[in-house]
Design a protein around this nucleic acid. Structure first.
Lengths: 231, 231
DNA sequence: TGCTAACATGAATCCTGAATCAGTTTCCAC
DNA sequence: GTGGAAACTGATTCAGGATTCATGTTAGCA
């Protein structure tokens, strides 16, 4: 990077941010390879040369776009689920927040799939970061007796991410709808509820027995930030 | 296409098939855009010019690779689940067959994600074709009382495809394992079983009431070819 | 007002690789 | 064994686009 994001004047910051946005838009519309620097700088309203004051290369911009939006998404999910009590309600809030965010960033959905060959770590890290936090949160919920035990929580995390990803893709990308329809969201709720809810819900005492608590309240946010869809 | 697959001599057929395989391999390794015709013809053991006797363009080869393998996969899944009785066992057989096939075609997994910008219909149709058959099979199973009702079967189909896709990606692509580990497969079985199995399994009579049958046997294959993971 | 560093410009450079084409080789029907 | 069709060859053409660079502009401070 020619100019670090931190060491820029307000003017420079504005230009960099315009280039990021233009990159997200053009990469999303044309794909990484068919997007030209000329289109991106044009969309950002700057000259070609200006691009290289802020990014080393086209690939560098791609990395920056994905990293930036990844942070945003994770922060968003953390925020949306933090105040929600109980793993299953957290899941529902998480899916809803995920769909909403994806609807506002449809370009990113497509960019991401394209990113595997631009920089293979970009693509992997996006999902690994989500999955790590997600798996931890699910493990905790299982230990608390909130949801059913499974052989491998990481697989569970990937399965849930896969559900979110594919359903978002179906409606937001394939159909180009502005939102995921309530019907689809409801279906996911049904599925997640059936798949995760412990078969014998009234045996709550096991939970308190396993992890004694003081107040008896479910201690919202105990999983360090409301992990849902990984955060 | 310069030379239709049908109107070729045995020699031509062999060359075309070598190009298809080389394409799958090189596209998978380097990605569509970074794969050059030279690499593909080199890998196939023919000269550059030969390529254009069989395919109109690089894009045309990509389309052919995806279409060819798509047919293979669907046939494979149909075959793997045809003889299995009951929707949930069919699901398990379907996931197993899917993972096995994907393990043998890891390149395709990556190619597919890349294909969205090569030819947007390629990518969509791959999943739409799978989802259509899958949704029908699930609808039938619901009507038969074999699995729980959901708001929208198509969403259910996409959710299940998402699970398969992401778990395959996790192990076969991210970790480059030769197979999806049994642990992960077992986890999916647990999930699918919990999510789909009717809550009150012993009330079988509802089923016979809804769709009276003669012999009483579950009529394996009644869903026209054993749809699992869409076929 | 004048000075300097940061910011901006866009035409020119340079490389890559898809697609072509003029010619060569293989195959097989007669 | 010969004619012609099918298959094959690979050097060449050509367009597109990432990156560079020589030069111009702005903003803020003394």
């Amino acid at each position: 990077m020619r100019a670090e994001a931190g060491s820029l004047t307000a003017r420079g910051e504005r230009t960099r941010s315009r280039l990021l946005e233009a990159g997200e838009e053009v990469f999303g519309r044309r794909g990484y390879h068919d997007a030209s620097i000329a289109q991106i700088t044009n969309s950002a309203g700057v000259a070609q040369g200006t691009f290289y004051l802020y990014f080393d290369s086209k690939r560098d911009l791609m990395r920056a776009v994905v990293a930036e939006r990844g942070h945003e998404l994770r922060a968003n999910l953390a925020h949306a689920t933090a105040a929600v009590v109980g793993r299953i309600p957290k899941e529902e809030a998480g899916f809803a927040a995920f769909f909403e965010w994806m609807a506002r960033h449809r370009a990113l959905c497509r960019i991401l799939r394209n990113s595997e060959y631009v920089d293979s770590d970009l693509y992997r890290d996006w999902y690994r970061q989500l999955a790590n936090g997600y798996a931890h949160a699910l493990r905790t919920a299982i230990d608390d007796g909130e949801i059913s035990e499974v052989d491998d929580v990481e697989t569970l995390a990937y399965a849930l991410m896969g559900i979110g990803d594919f359903v978002a893709m179906r409606w937001l990308i394939f159909e180009d709808r502005p939102t995921v329809p309530p019907r689809a969201v409801a279906t996911i709720s049904q599925l997640v509820d059936r798949a995760l809810r412990t078969q014998t819900p009234p045996r709550r005492r096991d939970r308190w027995a396993t992890r004694p608590r003081v107040g008896g309240a479910p201690a919202a946010g105990s999983d360090s930030g409301g992990q849902a869809l990984g955060v």
